[in-house]
Design a protein around this nucleic acid. Sequence first.
DNA 1: GCGACAG
DNA 2: ATCTTGTCGC
Length: 226
Amino acid sequence: MKIDKLHEWNIKPADAISLQKKLASTIIMKTPKHFSPETVAAADVSFNRFSSVFFSAAVVMWLSEFETIEVRTSVTESSFPYVPGLLSFREMPALETVFSTLETEPDVVLIDGHGYAHPRRFGIACHAGLILGTPTIGCAKSLIVGEYDAPGNKRGDHSPIFHNDEKIGVALRTRPDVKPIFVSVGHLIDLDTAIDTVLSCCHSTRIPEPLRAAHIHANEARKQHK
DNA sequence: GCGACAG
DNA sequence: ATCTTGTCGC
C-alpha cells in the first residue's frame, strides 16, 4: 500500500515530542461515510533484546471468516531508543516498511499500541493512520496513561479510560475471565466504530486475530533469521 | 523529589 | 519487547 512520508525519522526525542503535538492536531476522529470494513490488516514488530534489528510482519484478513489474504515480513534497523510516549519513532519505520510491501489495500488497520489514549493524544496508531491514510485503531495490552474501572465480565463489555477529565479510550473485555485490552482511536475513525471493529476481530481470543497473526509471523521471521 | 511508564 | 516453568481448563 501507498505510504505518505510525513517527515524524517532520524530526529531526537525532544524534537519528536514537539512533532507529536503538531501532528496530533491533524488527527480526524470521524469515520468515513459508508464505512463497512471487509478486510482488516495488522502488523507487529519482533526483535532480540539489545538488538537494533527489527523483524516485522503485516497481515491482511477477511473480517468475515478470518481467512488470511496476505502476509509480508521485512527486516529493518532501528536506532531510536524505547521511550514511553515515543514508541512510534522506534517502531513506525519498521511498520511503514512492511505496510509498503502489502499488495492488498485494507479497509482498516489495527496497531499494537495506543492511539488517542496517549499523554499527548498521539500514540503509534495515530501516527500510522496519518502515514497510511487509512482508518487505524490502537489496541494496547496495558495502559500508558489514564484510569479506568474494570468493565463487566462479558465479551463486549467496556469501560471508559479517563485522563484529565477526558474520555480517551476504553478498556474492552474481548472474552470473559481475561484482562481487557485498551482500545483508542488512531485516525479516520470514531471510538464506537473502533470498538465494534476490534470486537469483530475477536471470536475467541483476547487479542484481535490479525494482531495475533502478525505477532506470530514477526516472531517466526526473527527465529528463522538466526 | 518520587513514582509511573504502550512496546 | 524478550527470557522462562509450570499449571489450569476446554
